[in-house]
C-alpha cells in the first residue's frame, strides 16, 4: 500500500536576523533550505512553529522573497513569547505559504490604495514591496497607515524612504502622537478613515485593507463614500488558522475555510457571510 506523506511537516527556518521594531514587534528573517517559501505571494501566510510550544499563522511580510522570508511578529501569546527567546542561528519550523493573497495580477494597470491599521502593516508591506518592484505595471499608488500612537510605527525607516519617492503617496495617522522623526507634514493626528477622506481616491481604485477587526467597517464606509465598489475592495481577514490547509476547522467562516478561500477576500464575495464582524453583516442577507 502506497502511503502518502504528512501535510503538517514544517521545514527548518534558520533565524538570520532579528530586528527590533517598535515596542513588542520584531522583524524575523528566516532562511530555509528549500524554495517552498520562495513562491510566497503578497498577503499569504505561513505557519510558524516553535518546537515544544506550538504553531501560529503569521503573514508574510516581505514582497520580494528570494532565499529568505521576513515575518513581523508581535509578542502576544505562548508561541510568539517563545520565539522572542530565540537568537540568530536558532531554527523554528515553517509551513506554507498558504491561502490566497492579494490579487496583484488583477491590480495591474489600475490605481491601488493600501490601507493598514496597526499590525496589519505586515501583509500590506509585502504588497507595497511587490508593487514598487513592478511600479510601471500600476497606476496611482496610495498607502494609508494608521496606528494608535506614533510610537507604535512599524517600518519607520522604510516608510521614510517611501515618503521620499514621488511615485507613492503615503498618509500616516495616529490617534495620538509624540515627537516624530518623520517630517511633521507626513504624520497626522487622526484615523485611517480621516486619511481616506483626504486621499485622492475614487471609484477606479483597487483597495487592499488589513487591520484590526474593528477597523474594516469604518474604512469600508469611507470607501463607499468615495464610490469604490465592493468588487474593488479586498480585505485580509484574521481568523485562527491553525492547520492552514482547510482541515482543522478553526478558521471556518460562512461556508469556507479562511486559510484556503482567504485570508484575502473580495468584499463582494463576503456580502452574504454571516458572523463577519468586520463588515457588520450580522444577519443581513
Amino acid at each position: 500500500m502506497m502511503q502518502i506523506s504528512t501535510p503538517f511537516m514544517p521545514e527548518k527556518g534558520v533565524i538570520r536576523s532579528i530586528v527590533p521594531m517598535a515596542q513588542d514587534n520584531y522583524l524575523f528573517e528566516f532562511k530555509t533550505d528549500t524554495d517552498r517559501l520562495a513562491a510566497c505571494k503578497p498577503g499569504q501566510f505561513v505557519e510558524l512553529w516553535v518546537p515544544g510550544v506550538g504553531e501560529c499563522p503569521i503573514s508574510v511580510c516581505s514582497g520580494r522573497v528570494t532565499e529568505s522570508i521576513q515575518l513581523l511578529v508581535r509578542r502576544v501569546g505562548r508561541v510568539t513569547n517563545a520565539l522572542f527567546q530565540m537568537s540568530e542561528g536558532d531554527w523554528a519550523g515553517l509551513r506554507g505559504p498558504y491561502g490566497h493573497g492579494f490579487p496583484v495580477e488583477r491590480y495591474k494597470g489600475q490605481n491601488l490604495c493600501m490601507v493598514a491599521g496597526g499590525l496589519g502593516i505586515a501583509p500590506i508591506r509585502s504588497l507595497w514591496q511587490y508593487v514598487l518592484d513592478h511600479r510601471q505595471d500600476f497606476g496611482k499608488v496610495i498607502l494609508i497607515y494608521g496606528m494608535r500612537h506614533s510610537d507604535e510605527m512599524l517600518f519607520r525607516e522604510e516608510l521614510k524612504l517611501l515618503l521620499q519617492r514621488g511615485d507613492i503617496h503615503v498618509f500616516l495617522a495616529a490617534d495620538d502622537a509624540t515627537v516624530c522623526e518623520l517630517p511633521p507634514f507626513a504624520m497626522q493626528v487622526g484615523r485611517v478613515t480621516d486619511m481616506i477622506r483626504q486621499a485622492a481616491i475614487d471609484h477606479d481604485f483597487q483597495v487592499a485593507i488589513c487591520g484590526p477587526p474593528v477597523m474594516y467597517k469604518y474604512v469600508i464606509e469611507e470607501l463607499k463614500a468615495k464610490h469604490v465598489t465592493d468588487q474593488n475592495i479586498w480585505l485580509s481577514l484574521e481568523r485562527q488558522m491553525k492547520c492552514g490547509i482547510g482541515k482543522c476547522g478553526h478558521c471556518f467562516i460562512g461556508g469556507r475555510f479562511t486559510c484556503q478561500a482567504g485570508p484575502v477576500f473580495q468584499l463582494a464575495d463576503l456580502k452574504f457571510v454571516p458572523e463577519l464582524i468586520e463588515c457588520d453583516n450580522g444577519g443581513a442577507q
Binding site: F8, G52, V53, G54, K242, K247, C248, G249
Partner: peptide
C-alpha cells in the same frame, strides 16, 4: 475539527 498541540 482538531487541535494541534506540542508535547515537550
Amino acid at each position: 475539527c482538531f487541535d494541534l498541540v506540542d508535547i515537550a
